[in-house]
Structures are given as C-alpha cells and as structure tokens.
C-alpha cells in the first residue's frame, strides 16, 4: 500500500460524504443526543423544568407501581398483536382479491386507501360518533325495531380496545393493501403459469410460494405497522381519552400527560425510556438475525 492510497480511502466519494454531513449530525446530535439526554434526566427528580438531582431508580419504581402504566402496557400489547395480525391478513386478502384482474380496480383501491388520507384525530372522532350509543350504530339498529340492541364498545371497559382496533384497522389496512398489491404485481407471471401447470391449488401457491417471495414487502409493512402501534396516541385521545376509567390508556398518553399536564418531566422520561427499551428488545435480536450471522443470498 503506497502513501497516496490511504487518504484516498477517506476522501473517496468526497461529495457524497460532505452532502451527508447534515444528516449524520442530525442523527447523532438530535436523535442520539436527545435520547441520551432523556435517559439521563429520567434518573432525576425534574418537575416542570429539567434539573440534575439524581434520585436513582425512583421514577421507574413509581412507574411500575402505577396501575395506569401497567394497564397501558397491557393495552398496547393486546392492541399491537391484534392490529398487526389483522392488518396484515386483511390487507393481504384484499390485495389478493384486487389482483384477480377485477373491474374498477382503481376505484376500489382508492376507496380502500382513502381512510389513510385522514388524520388519526378525524378517524377517532368519526368512529367515536359511529360507536356512540346515542347517535351511532346502536340507535340506527334500534330505530329499525330491535329495541334491545346494545352496541356500545366505547362505554364498556372490556370492549373498548376493540372499538379502537376497528378504527385503527379502518384507517390502516388500505395502505397495507396497496403495499401488498405492489408486492403481488412484482411476482413474475411465469411463476403463476408454472404452478398452474403443476396443478397446485391457488391458495397453496399464495401461501407457500408467493408469500415467501414477498418477504421484503412484508418486512416494510411490518415496520410501518409496528411504528404506528408504538406511537398510538392521537386515536385514543380523539376516540376515548383513555376511558372508560383507564381501560384504553396507552404508554404514549401516559408520557404526554406526565410531561405536560402533570409537570413531572422525569416520570414522563422514565416512561419514554421504557418505551424505547421495549422497542430495542424487539429490534435488536431481529436486526441481529436479519443483518448479522451468515449472509443470505
């Protein structure tokens, strides 16, 4: 290796490197820096204004002894599992139907995707009205003659999560469907022909050939849905404000309330650190499997 070779390594693609400096700085200073700052201050007793008086794990003890936080965690787990499963299944099934060369495909696609154009606040309010027993589905069905019909998920502690789920799915599946449809279109027509020649039933072709081939699309979708679940907040605020009681509280709402309403920064930071930790616990093993170990071909 000659002496001129070394700097070449550093200065290769110099323009690209210079161009990426702002983003690198943003990532390091803003994302990493602010995250570290949050974690550090979660060990203090900061109230309205941040101050460095360390109190050890007090905030975390209080966090995990708060029944509202525990309920929030349970809720996000249930909501997350169901939302992930249903949006993938429904999204894929809708896409598979649209892929059968149906007429007016564009129209259907627009209709399904349309809810995604709305903000969660609007979705939440719309579904709050639809599910309201006084004006919504319940009153409509009652006016048709079924006087004792009861459908008020938002006022029932054990059903309220499903009320949120309906709204979440209504908004989110359209996007999943579009991604899946794009994935399906990317599958070579020859594969379908080959499976038909071999006499493999259509559902088996989907399940064992097409879906494994669509792995990258599934991963993209998974990341999108999962990030949506973790930051679930506005839908809850618009639809139930955490009620009835604390039955539909979510972690992000706990963090927001602590930070801004209760003037307890450190408690909010402890909550957000726990959220980050949960995400990392899921993300790190996955990333290790995906990118580390032996290289896939």
């Amino acid at each position: 290796m000659d002496r001129a070779g070394r700097p070449n390594q550093l200065f290769r693609n110099l323009n690209a490197k210079i161009a990426s400096i702002p983003m690198v700085l943003t990532a390091v200073v803003i994302f990493t820096g602010a995250t570290l700052w949050t974690v550090v201050y979660s060990f203090t007793n900061s109230r309205l204004l941040p101050r460095l008086e360390f109190v050890g794990f007090d905030q975390y003890e209080r966090l995990w002894s708060s029944s509202r936080w525990i309920v929030s965690i349970q809720n996000i787990m249930i909501y997350g599992t169901l939302s992930l499963t249903f949006s993938l299944v429904i999204g894929f099934v809708l896409a598979a139907f649209l892929d059968q060369k149906v007429r007016f495909e564009n129209t259907f696609r627009t209709i399904f995707l349309y809810p995604f154009a709305l903000s969660f606040i609007v979705t939440g309010l719309v579904w709050q009205w639809i599910l309201n027993p006084e004006f919504g589905i319940q009153s409509v069905v009652r006016s048709w003659g079924w006087e004792n019909f009861v459908f008020d998920p938002l006022y029932n502690q054990s059903l309220v999560l499903y009320g949120l789920l309906i709204a979440g799915l209504w908004q989110g599946t359209g996007l999943v469907m579009c991604l899946m449809l794009a994935g399906l279109r990317g599958i070579d027509e020859e594969i379908w022909k080959a499976s038909r020649v071999d006499g493999i039933p259509v559902w088996k072709t989907y399940l064992f050939i097409i879906i494994p081939m669509m792995r990258p699309v599934f991963i993209t979708t998974l990341v999108l849905i999962a990030s949506g679940i973790v930051r679930l907040y506005d839908l809850v605020v618009a639809q139930t404000s955490g009620g009835p009681g604390i039955a539909s509280e979510v972690p992000a709402k706990y963090v927001y309330d602590s930070l801004f309403l209760r003037q307890n920064l450190a408690q909010g930071f402890a909550g957000s650190t726990m959220m980050l930790l949960t995400v990392l616990i899921v993300l790190i093993p996955w990333a290790y499997l995906e990118f580390g170990g032996k290289k896939r071909d």
Partner: peptide
C-alpha cells in the same frame, strides 16, 4: 397539591369511579 400529585389522585379516582 402539586399537579403531579393531583394527577396521581385523578388516575386513582378514574379507575375507582369507573369500575
């Protein structure tokens, strides 16, 4: 009471009154 304590009491009361 500080807003923090009031918030904790609110949480408890919401839970208590609603079920």
């Amino acid at each position: 009471l500080s807003p923090d304590t009031q918030g904790q009491i609110e949480d408890l009361m919401t839970e208590f009154w609603s079920s």
